[in-house]
């Protein structure tokens, strides 16, 4: 891997333009095509650390990775039955979401959310859906639905 780095502004401008292009092409359906964005990062950085099958432990582990890598300052969570409410503070990709909102587009992709979804789906073998990304003052509020079981294919 190259040691050369680029600025986060440059990276975010490209991510925004890619997301916007995808939105312009696919509209509200775009969100369902980006549910695995971050998968390679998940496999390399997150999966090796996952041991517990407790959702709280999984989120704390992912929050630790994101903090350690300087991607987000803090990840908080609360749970109300099947609803998982995640707060992501100080995310380096927040300008992407802000630019989407400024264009009148509801944000539809969030790497921290995808990492959590991928981790829970893998460790607990239950489906998870990202229902909402709300860009609020300093923090992105994510709403995830954790389902009881995966539909049986048998």
């Amino acid at each position: 891997m190259s040691d050369q780095t680029v600025t986060i502004d440059y990276a975010n401008s490209l991510i925004y333009e890619l997301q916007k292009a995808f939105w312009d092409e696919r509209g509200k359906g775009a969100r369902f095509r980006t549910t695995k964005v971050g998968n390679q990062y998940f496999e390399e950085k997150v999966r090796p650390l996952l041991q517990s099958t407790e959702i709280e432990d999984i989120i704390e582990k992912i929050g630790g990775v994101l903090q350690g890598e300087g991607i987000a300052a803090n990840v908080s969570y609360s749970r109300e039955e099947r609803l998982l409410k995640i707060g992501v503070k100080g995310c380096i990709h927040r300008p992407v979401e802000e630019r989407m909102v400024a264009k009148g587009v509801e944000p539809f992709t969030c790497v921290p959310a995808n990492l959590i979804v991928l981790a829970i789906e893998e460790k607990l073998d239950v489906p998870v859906e990202l229902a909402e990304i709300k860009v609020e003052e300093g923090t992105c509020q994510l709403l995830l639905v954790v389902f009881e079981k995966r539909p049986s294919l048998d």
Binding site: E129, A131, P151
Partner: peptide, 15 residues
């Protein structure tokens, strides 16, 4: 198909 629909529509419901 049912799993996918259920996830998406539940997300629409809870929001």
């Amino acid at each position: 198909a049912g799993g996918g629909s259920g996830r998406r529509f539940t997300a629409e419901f809870v929001t």
